[in-house]
Design a protein around this nucleic acid. Structure first.
Length: 275
DNA sequence: TCAAGATGATCAG
DNA sequence: TGATCCTCTTGAT
């Protein structure tokens, strides 16, 4: 379930379980056998996340680079280490913990130069202290593409996925089809600040909860969401249901290959502006 | 038992 | 824009 907060959590969790010690690495599935052999027995020196990319520095071996893609997952559990179940691409283990990686789009060992190149093309990540929102703004205000598409472009802004995209636009009252070059600077700054708060909460809790206090299940006397896709949210995957704020029916359409969700009444801002 | 779908990204045309 | 890859879960048959 990987948006940026998931990867930052993963970086913290892998460090807690394996940091500062030698790590055994293997590829039960076999597809990462060579890479695992390179890492095996080396000391884990550092872990970090940039947007949706996870990086771990193994002393004398290089960087483990993982991108979970749509369906990738890493489970970290305490020892004892069981027989692998399913398609385990990479297993990390020491005396106290083990971690199983499945379904990742990218799992590779890269050099310092390759890491620098990777990070060089990514847009600012709100969860990183060194992130500069103006770098994203420079791209957004020059583009005619819809803001709903730009927010998902990792070269513009890194770490935002389909849930945060839908929710931050709802909270900003901005229509997802608003062209980037008519979004106002203060609107962008507001979304950045909002993303920062929402994603920090996501790192702390592992959930994406975006509804304000007066729209929680308790406050509204409604049932909590039962699925595990994003916690309590305003629009994400709520198509056909009523908006918590204005009671309009939440809409959906495909934008740039992904499902977009929005409230046609609450999110009218930007609709009439021309690029 | 099987197909569809999912918080992603790339590549060909 | 559509096809493709990655793996697992859910819901329909």
């Amino acid at each position: 379930m990987p948006e940026g907060h998931t990867l930052h959590r993963l970086a913290n969790d892998v460090w807690d379980a394996f940091g500062g010690r030698p790590v055994r690495a293997s590829s039960p599935q076999g597809r990462f056998a060579e890479g695992a052999a390179l890492l095996d027995g080396h000391l884990l020196r550092q872990t970090e996340a940039h947007g949706k990319h996870f990086l771990a520095d193994f002393e004398g071996a290089g960087w483990l680079h993982i991108h979970l893609g749509l369906i990738g997952k890493m489970d970290i559990r305490p020892a004892p280490v069981p027989v692998p179940v399913g398609q385990v691409r990479l297993r990390l283990q020491n005396g106290t913990s083990y971690a199983d990686l499945r379904g990742a789009t990218v799992c590779e060992v890269i050099t310092d130069e390759e890491r620098d190149k990777l990070l060089g093309r990514l847009g600012p990540d709100p969860l990183r202290d060194d992130a500069d929102p103006d770098l994203a703004w420079n791209r957004i205000h020059r583009s005619k593409l819809p803001i709903g598409q730009l927010l998902m472009n990792q070269d513009v802004l890194s770490g935002v996925g389909n849930v945060y995209r839908a929710e931050v636009l709802f909270r900003a009252k901005l229509n997802p089809m608003t062209p980037g070059n008519v979004v106002k600077k203060r609107e962008w700054q507001g979304m950045w600040d909002d993303l920062l708060a929402l994603m920090k909460y996501g790192v702390e809790t592992g959930r994406i909860d975006t509804v304000a206090d007066d729209h929680t299940p308790e406050a509204m006397g409604r049932d909590p969401r039962r699925d595990d896709h994003g916690g309590e949210v305003y629009v994400y995957r709520r198509q056909g249901q009523r908006c918590y704020v204005c009671q309009s029916v939440i809409r959906t359409k495909i934008l740039a290959g992904r499902n977009l969700f929005w409230c046609p009444r609450c999110q009218r801002t930007g609709l009439t502006r021309k690029s």
